[in-house]
Design a protein around this nucleic acid. Structure first.
Lengths: 167, 167
DNA sequence: GCTTCGGGCCGATTCATATTCGGCATGGAT
DNA sequence: ATCCATGCCGAATATGAATCGGCCCGAAGC
């Protein structure tokens, strides 16, 4: 029945449907993408073949963007996490490449509010964090930075496909 | 040679080594964890069996925490992204479960600075965001919130294991 | 109301890949 | 100098991915 399904209108004028079974599959695959399709199917009440086909289509449609491993930051030498509010004197809308050029920057967003860009940074030490701030400051249009250092991370988790349930 | 390797001293008094080949493997697996071990091995100059063994150990040691799919937030109805600074009147160190209980909260960190907790939130609409703020406000000890709405995301990417290269 | 068509699921088959294993080479320690 | 541990290779085996034909709907058209 259609009420169980969520419909999305996309820019390319195409309807895409993600029903509750797809959501359950996505939730499973966010937990563990290495489990066999047989187990996956059983978890959502489908045969292995049907589960495989649905997952294939979710990939094809771009709902699943990719499959990747989750690496412990501390294990590869990035123990310091900070969020940086970036102030600017000019329009930052085209500055994405400048931020992307700094590998320590994990996320960069244009935000509403007094600052104009918010970035998430991971480094090995606070000295390296300072160096990243210096390089951010060197970006065209940047007039200032305000760093917030994380003392302890409660948790970081993926988006739950099961919660958001209205159009 | 030892100079090529990064050594980490861990709390449990055990040395763990992540050398440059491990880093290359991690980088590959962050790009695409579905590729066969044969391709993986070729990418780093190892046989499939050796690559398999290294990856197995990286999982065992917890360097690889899990393998998961990356889901497009918009496709499952979470188009609004916001960061929320949470002010409090008391020690928030034990409040992790209270934040974790809200599924729309993707990250929660204790921070240095005027606010005490920083959370990342995804919802379908701004109305739902407001509801999340209301629920955050209801958490014991929370005295105020300050939300910053993201207008455009430049990028979100995984930590690069190749950059952080000093102890 | 009946027929046709398209979509989705199932179950089995085939094929690719993961996983395991024995053997060899290297480097460090006794 | 020898022993031992570690890591790699290449092959054998087991497992699961990917494919395919057939069946069962529900919707659209006659």
């Amino acid at each position: 029945m259609l009420q169980d399904e969520i419909l999305f209108w996309l820019a390319d004028s195409e309807w895409r449907v993600v029903d509750h079974i797809d959501r359950a599959l996505l939730a499973q695959l966010q937990q563990d993408a290495t489990q066999p399709y047989a187990a996956l199917g059983q978890a959502v009440g489908l045969s292995a073949g049907a589960a495989h086909e649905r997952v294939r289509k979710l990939r094809e449609r771009g709902v699943i963007r990719r499959t990747a491993v989750d690496v412990d930051p501390a294990a590869v030498g990035s123990a310091v996490l900070a969020y940086v509010m970036v102030d600017s004197t000019s329009w930052m809308g085209d500055s994405a490449p400048a931020f992307a050029a700094l590998p320590e920057i994990l996320e960069a967003h244009v935000i509403a509010g007094s600052a104009s860009v918010l970035v998430k940074v991971r480094t090995a030490t606070t000295e390296q964090l300072q160096d990243v701030l210096r390089r951010i400051y060197a970006i065209e249009g940047v007039s200032g930075t305000q760093a917030t250092v994380v003392l302890e991370t409660f948790f970081e988790r993926p988006l739950s496909p099961l919660t958001a349930d209205q159009t």
